[in-house]
């Protein structure tokens, strides 16, 4: 394991995974907010909003993430001049967050929508019958109950998002997979150990995440 005893390599390894964690955290927050809004649009009584929500889901769920990230870099940044930071790495980071969250929001939206479908229609009818508005019905009655059946799928989406964050490496951010590629280039005799360390780190981060979401889903399950 002489590769990782070199402080320079170890620092690169740590900062690579820090980028992954930061990308995951920021994108998860944005995708959650965006996904809730899109799901609200998809179940709203307004046809234009329903169409917008459906359009978003169909476009981003069916486009490879690599293309979305490339578009953020070459389209938004290089062509349209959208610069989010003077610092090169931070600019790539934020472009990555935009790409990851627009893409992931489509999946969040669909998970919430199927969660909403697990809430009996009578719940929304009773809410409307006492005079709650559409937004109140969704916020106070439907979403809290949907949330409980959405927890488990959210776990899967978060895990996928964390792994997908490596794609931001393709636009030059030195996240984990980019670091791994560099290390493999420099230490051709230690390919398997390097690979195992990186894969193991992902597994060590994500296996507990999966169990945590499973536990949370059970704990919050709604009694009927």
């Amino acid at each position: 394991m002489h590769v990782f005893t070199d402080p320079k390599n170890f620092d690169a390894y740590v900062s690579g995974f820090l980028w992954i964690l930061k990308l995951t955290g920021a994108s998860a927050a944005c995708a959650l907010v965006l996904g809730v809004l899109l799901a609200a649009m998809r179940v709203s009584p307004v046809p234009v909003l329903r169409g917008f929500g459906a359009g978003w889901v169909n476009i981003f769920r069916n486009t490879p993430l690599t293309l979305v990230i490339f578009f953020c870099y070459f389209g938004l940044y290089s062509t349209l001049g959208l610069s989010l930071s003077q610092e090169l790495d931070l600019n790539r980071y934020w472009l990555g967050v935009i790409g990851l969250s627009t893409y992931t929001a489509a999946f969040v939206c669909e998970a919430i929508r199927s969660g909403i479908n697990t809430v009996p229609t009578g719940q929304a009818e009773a809410a409307r019958a006492i005079g709650l508005s559409f937004a109140q019905t969704l916020r106070i009655v439907v979403l809290p109950q949907a949330a409980r059946s959405v927890i488990a799928p959210f776990g899967s989406i978060l895990i996928a998002l964390c792994k997908n964050a490596t794609i931001v490496g393709t636009i030059g951010l030195m996240e984990s997979s980019n670091v791994m590629k560099d290390l493999i280039n420099s230490y051709g005799n230690a390919v398997i150990p390097i690979f195992l360390v990186f894969a193991g780190t992902f597994a060590a981060l994500l296996i507990p995440t999966g169990y945590f979401f499973g536990w949370l889903a059970n704990k919050l399950a709604v009694k009927r």
């Binding site: 719940q123 009818e125 019958a129 508005s133 009655v141």
Partner: peptide, 20 residues
């Protein structure tokens, strides 16, 4: 419409109490 509904009480066959 929401205001009107607030003035008309409704009781359903399947109760529809808010489960949470």
């Amino acid at each position: 419409l929401a205001k009107l509904r607030s003035e008309v009480g409704m009781v359903f066959q399947s109760f529809n109490l808010f489960a949470h």
